[in-house]
Design a protein around this nucleic acid. Structure first.
Lengths: 150, 150
DNA sequence: TCCGAAAGTTAGCCTAGGCTAAGAAGTGAT
DNA sequence: ATCACTTCTTAGCCTAGGCTAACTTTCGGA
């Protein structure tokens, strides 16, 4: 029982820097993914996506939604007409679909490893943006194995 | 084989808004956690934490480090003397220790579910900030069970 | 000792993503 | 058709977290 468990040396600075850089990249796309995912859900559920509903569901002001939508439009993810509802471009739809699939996979995975549904839903919101393709595949394999094995 | 898999209704707006709010809260603390964790690592490995090394390992400029350290100092996590190294306050040490424990738990967990070590390290960087206490406990249980069962 | 390189800071700029307050545009009921 | 209400936008502000360029301080070697 030693006090210094494992004086693991620090990773090479370049590796660590690369990880943080990828991290910041993921942070940048997270907002866009959350928005298009929500817009897709609203379009499916209500037939339209209105700024006021997005504001309510994101827990932010309408002014913030207007500004964010502007960025999404600039980035070619949504289309808007002033005072009209929002629509997703092809790119937006693709992103939404991928985000939704990731989200649901992460939720199912978290529940499978023993988390309650409510917390799984909460944590998935953050984790989905930081799980790599490799991680998602590992989650899929895990779920498949669990299903097969019982 | 239906085209519309499950027209799952949207969650209540308030619940969803609360989740996003907690999400934003986690995002705000993530930077602080990353910094104090790195500072603790540097102190342990090198005996001192210098801004230039933090800049190198975070992949940002020294000016960015200076600004961020200023915020950490304002928030009572680090202590600095101009042109001298950095030191953690008690609060900073606590945060660093918790962050490190979370980080390593997430890495071990990701490896246990089939991820390679390199990707686990990368993904943990993002996931550690978004896993709730309940999730971390679930990960612990999973690892314990895996160890017991084989 | 002193002087050049390395380290740290400061100034000034930028974007994302929050906010409030106020005004403009659309909509529904009478 | 009008008027009140809702929705959307605009203006102006803020913080976090990036950047470069220029300046200051420290430190080590000749």
């Amino acid at each position: 029982m030693r006090r210094t468990p494992a004086p693991r040396p620090l990773p090479p600075a370049e590796d660590q820097a690369a990880r943080f850089a990828r991290q910041r990249e993921a942070d940048r796309t997270a907002t866009a993914e959350d928005y298009v995912e929500l817009i897709a859900d609203l379009l499916r559920a209500d037939g339209e996506a209105r700024a006021v509903d997005i504001a309510r569901r994101m827990g932010v002001s309408q002014a913030t939604v207007t500004a964010t939508i502007g960025r999404l439009q600039r980035d070619g993810l949504v289309e808007t007409k002033p005072y009209r509802g929002l629509f997703l471009t092809d790119a937006g739809r693709d992103m939404a679909q991928a985000a939704k699939a990731r989200h649901e996979l992460v939720v199912r995975f978290l529940i499978a490893v023993g988390l309650d549904a409510e917390t799984a839903e909460q944590d998935a919101e953050g984790i989905e943006h930081h799980a790599s393709e490799a991680a998602l595949q590992a989650f899929e394999r895990f779920l498949a194995a669990r299903k097969a094995g019982g």
